[in-house]
Design a protein around this nucleic acid. Structure first.
Lengths: 230, 230
DNA sequence: AATGAGAAAATACAGTGTATCGCTATGAGA
DNA sequence: TCTCATAGCGATACACTGTATTTTCTCATT
């Protein structure tokens, strides 16, 4: 019996692992946002049935956790610079850049504790930057404060970016002229400070604004680090 | 023909308005989190069919927007204190308290621009606190920085709170002993700074931690306000 | 060759957001 | 008082979701 007579063996299912699953999910999210990620579509990209995924994750939320952890690998800088301030600044900016590459990250940022290997590594890097410069509690407070800032700032930035994209207008134009509701509200005179900000404020670009706020927060941290370390 | 002969008129549908819809949605979210809010359930609480809601909102996302705006009314303080620092501190704390009352707020905070009447009022109050103390751009940067901080901090606090609740353990105990994964990771020695923080750090309560970080950020703002106002 | 175990697939279910569509009750006009 | 247009409402429908359960199949072992 030659090869030609024997039928081909039935197609074995392509092997799966978390890495491939997460990669597919990230690709979907990059293309269509978080809500484009469904277990069926993820599995579909891997030529598998949806239930197949449940061997690797036990809930969709866990898939999101894996996605976040995967992206946090992009955040880790190659090498740690000496200056604590530079280290924190870099971490913050890299997080921001990751969120600009993967906008869905903004929806997940800060939503759950990041306990994956890369998440822990990011936390480690953050703490390490300040290690020894003050007592542990001060260091922890500093880390929490800085990361609360950039988490919040990134979320707001992405939120605004989406709003601008949805209306097709720059934030200023939209507030100033074309957002009928906002315009009307400002016209009521009930929001004088806001009106002043909208009409007289300079339209500074997002990155600069992020960097400025970050510097302020880092200034605050610097001031607290002057106390003697333990 | 007496009243008794005449049949009752057919039951008129109970009138609806956004206020009642939003109240029902908030009640559901308070009880079961954001994912307990479905248009069917909201409508059900009002003895209406799901499609009825589409006369008042055109998308579920809009319902969320209305919910957020409603809760922001709780944030507005009754009267504005004279000191800008006190004003910002109060706004931050009231936001935090609102999020503790309505944990789902943490999921929505910063997710979309808050353009509802109460959202605008909160922004106005925040800007007004700093009005005249510096040039507009500095004031805006200050407002953005402070609110980025407390947005991020609140989100993290709620995220941790949920994690603790899910495991039934305090954050420290959970990290220190019972979270097998974290324990194992720390034992690898790859996260020395993190291990030190977990084992040697003091377990300060969430409100104090929030307040401390907030004070630091306010210090930073204070330092920038010293420049001459316009 | 039969059997057992394990993985994958198919099916199923309860629920979701939203589009569409006929009905019906209501108020305006005669 | 009757008729008619219309707006609002309910029902129905659709495509899709996350996940439980059941069925089928493949392979290694006896």
């Amino acid at each position: 019996m030659t090869v030609w007579d024997r039928p081909e063996p039935p197609p074995r299912p392509v092997p799966l692992d978390r890495e491939r699953i997460v990669a597919a999910a990230i690709a979907l999210a990059d293309e269509g946002g978080l809500e484009a990620v469904s277990l069926r579509k993820v599995a579909g990209r891997l030529d598998a049935g949806p239930m197949r995924l449940y061997g690797y994750i036990s809930t969709k939320q866990e898939l999101f956790d894996l996605m976040v952890d995967e992206v946090q690998a992009e955040i880790l800088p190659q090498e740690q610079p000496g200056d604590w301030r530079e280290a924190l600044r870099i971490l913050a900016h890299r997080t921001r850049q990751a969120a600009l590459r993967h906008e869905w990250l903004a929806d997940l940022l800060g939503g759950r504790p990041a306990l994956g290997p890369n998440g822990l590594a990011v936390t480690e890097a953050t703490l390490a930057a300040l290690d020894g410069l003050a007592d542990i509690d001060t260091v922890m407070r500093a880390v929490e404060t800085v990361s609360a800032y950039f988490t919040g700032a990134i979320r707001r930035e992405i939120a605004n970016l989406r709003a601008e994209r949805a209306t097709g207008l720059s934030k200023r134009d939209w507030q100033r002229a074309s957002g009928p509701h906002v315009t009307r509200m400002l016209a009521t005179g009930r929001f004088p400070a806001l009106a002043k900000a909208v009409y007289d404020g300079t339209d500074v670009d997002a990155e600069a604004s992020f960097a400025t706020g970050l510097d302020w927060v880092l200034d605050a941290v610097a001031a607290k680090l002057t106390r003697p370390p333990v």
